[in-house]
Design a protein around this nucleic acid. Structure first.
Length: 501
RNA sequence: GCCCCCAUCGUCUAGAGGCCUAGGACGCCACCCUUUCAAGGUGGAGAUCAGGGGUUCGAAUCCCCUUGGGGGCACCA
């Protein structure tokens, strides 16, 4: 008794994703809130895989979910640590597909205690009743037709080959709970029909399995999405019938599409892995997700996972939903990218760059794009010119782009020629940003051009575009030989257009 | 249709009766810096706190109603 009370005093939270799809942004956020709550209060965080829907659950999805959570830096104290792997924790197994015997036993107990019964209605019959109820403006609920079946009728159905699902008898009473984020919530269970807890084929259903597992795993606070509010009264009734102590419930607001509907794959990018592949940093995602529905109450806004764990309080979570604002995520991602050291950034950039980028080059690249990277995945686009072959490069130029505003093509050509000729005697060793810049500024001055006007044709010649990383740093990385050749190509292009040279 | 929940700038939010002529951030617009683009700096537009009633000396903050929005109503989770 004492031991049990001590257990209950211990905070235990859990995340129970079902592997019927890749890790969803919303699942990640709910996981994060559970994780932060556990860490903040020194509790235990449990991961349980709800794979009772055999038809839709796969280990690939389980892997995506587990790896995605790990990638975010979220860890759990109990549960499978690896997809398909061993469980850690004293309430193992943590996959519902491996806990079927427990549900069967509890269902039997409910049946024996008269809290549940077998129902032989077909889905067509059920559907017909539901339609009628809707037409009569009544709440759609099971009629209770099979609740008081006599032995004869039951035998007749079974003889017919009908299997019979198990329905839980919902006591017609008002239930209420003190929600961790919303306060007092009330619901009249008389509005509910007896719901199915075990399918005719013997497989248990969600509302039943969560209760059995949360109770056995001693979960003290159930923190989940707002879309579960209407499941709570059903589950409370089940807790009572089963004689389990009630946990506390906390329903966090939903993450929304821009049109304020529940965030969906159809309208938003919901797969966590997509964000990883685009080059969002887990730190940025975590920071961003934490603030979707919560704030520390100050004006600080950059927080690491550990700092969040220090500050996070479920009681400060909002009740209203929050739109997933991509612009803000992008901003935060930039902040985190810029906060990385050059070495760290180079490391993270590696998988996003073409193979041609040797590790050496990546490190030298970083200073050029650090300030202009929104996502790591944008790096290739930004510095692609470094890895192009000169043959492709030639196709970049169209005479127009090479010419600065208010200048003639002939001017651009002669300017480029001067630059080319003055730079070509430099050795490879001299080919460094500082020297190149001072030389070119000197040329501009002698020509009476604004530096920017001279740099424009050079930029296009070297990088193939009028927007690029800093010119001289880029030239240094491209190297003397290729720079000279690209300027020659540009020159040819300019004359090819037939305007001077 | 039935039930439940929610409601501060376009967005994320601060705000727990007087500190609010409502603060910050993103986005947006200017200007500065500047070799382009970014980044950075400065400034600006942007919310009669959904509307209406109360309670109170005093309400964004408490209560009620209305409106609007969302979620749930499965032998899915």
């Amino acid at each position: 008794m004492l031991a049990n009370d001590e257990n209950r005093a211990q905070l235990r939270v859990r995340m129970a994703p079902s592997p019927t799809g890749p890790l969803h942004i919303g699942t990640a956020r709910t996981s994060l809130y559970n994780y932060l709550t556990a860490r903040h209060r020194g509790g235990t965080f449990v991961l349980r895989i709800e794979d009772t829907d055999v038809a839709r659950s796969t280990t690939d999805f389980e892997r995506d979910i587990i790896e995605g959570l790990h990638w975010l830096g979220i860890t759990w104290d109990e549960g499978p640590q690896v997809a398909g792997g061993e469980d850690i924790g004293r309430y193992a197994p943590y996959r519902q597909s491996q806990r079927l015997d427990r549900y069967a036993a509890e269902a039997e107990r409910l049946l024996a205690d008269g809290n549940a019964y077998r129902c032989y209605c077909t889905s067509d019959e059920l559907e017909a009743v539901r339609r009628k109820q809707e037409a009569n403006h009544e709440p759609p609920r099971y009629s209770g037709r099979c609740r008081n079946l006599g032995d004869a009728e039951r035998n007749a159905f079974e003889a017919e080959g009908r299997q019979g699902a198990i329905r839980f008898i919902v006591p017609p009473e008002t239930v209420s709970w003190d929600d961790l984020v919303r306060g007092e919530v009330e619901f009249d269970n008389a509005l509910l029909g007896d719901f199915v807890i075990v399918r005719a084929d013997g497989s248990p259903l969600y509302n039943f399995t969560v209760v059995v597992d949360d109770a056995e795993m001693q979960i003290s606070e159930v923190i989940r999405g707002e879309d579960h509010i209407s499941n709570t009264p059903k589950q409370i009734a089940l807790y009572r019938a089963l004689g389990y102590p009630l946990p506390r419930f906390g329903h966090i607001p939903l993450i929304l599409n821009p049109d304020r509907t529940k965030m969906s794959k159809r309208k938003s990018q919901t797969a966590m892995d997509e964000y990883r592949r685009q080059g969002y940093l887990p730190e940025a995602l975590v920071n961003f997700l934490a603030f979707l529905g919560w704030s520390p109450g100050t004006e600080e806004e950059i927080f690491s996972l550990d700092e969040l764990a220090e500050r996070f309080e479920l009681g400060k979570v909002h009740k209203g939903g929050a739109i997933f604002d991509k612009d803000r995520l992008d901003y935060l991602n930039g902040v985190y990218i810029r906060s990385l050291s050059d070495e760290q950034l180079a490391l993270r950039l590696r998988p996003f760059l073409p193979d041609a980028a040797a590790d050496q080059t990546v490190v030298r690249l970083v200073p050029l794009l650090k300030e202009r990277l929104v996502r790591l995945g944008d790096a290739g686009e930004l510095v692609g010119f470094l890895f192009e072959t000169d043959a492709t490069v030639a196709s970049w130029y169209d005479g127009e782009d090479l010419v600065p505003k208010k200048r003639e093509a002939a001017d651009a050509a002669s300017a480029l020629r001067i630059v080319r000729d003055e730079l070509s005697p430099l050795t490879d060793a001299d080919w460094a940003a500082d020297l190149l810049e001072s030389r070119c500024r000197g040329i501009a001055e002698r020509m009476g051009w604004k530096p920017g006007d001279l740099f424009k044709p050079m930029r296009v010649a070297i990088t193939g575009r009028s927007v690029s990383p800093p010119l001289f740093g880029s030239m240094e990385l491209v190297g003397r030989e290729h720079c000279l050749r690209r300027m020659d190509d540009a020159l040819a292009k300019l004359s090819g257009v037939g305007v001077g040279a």
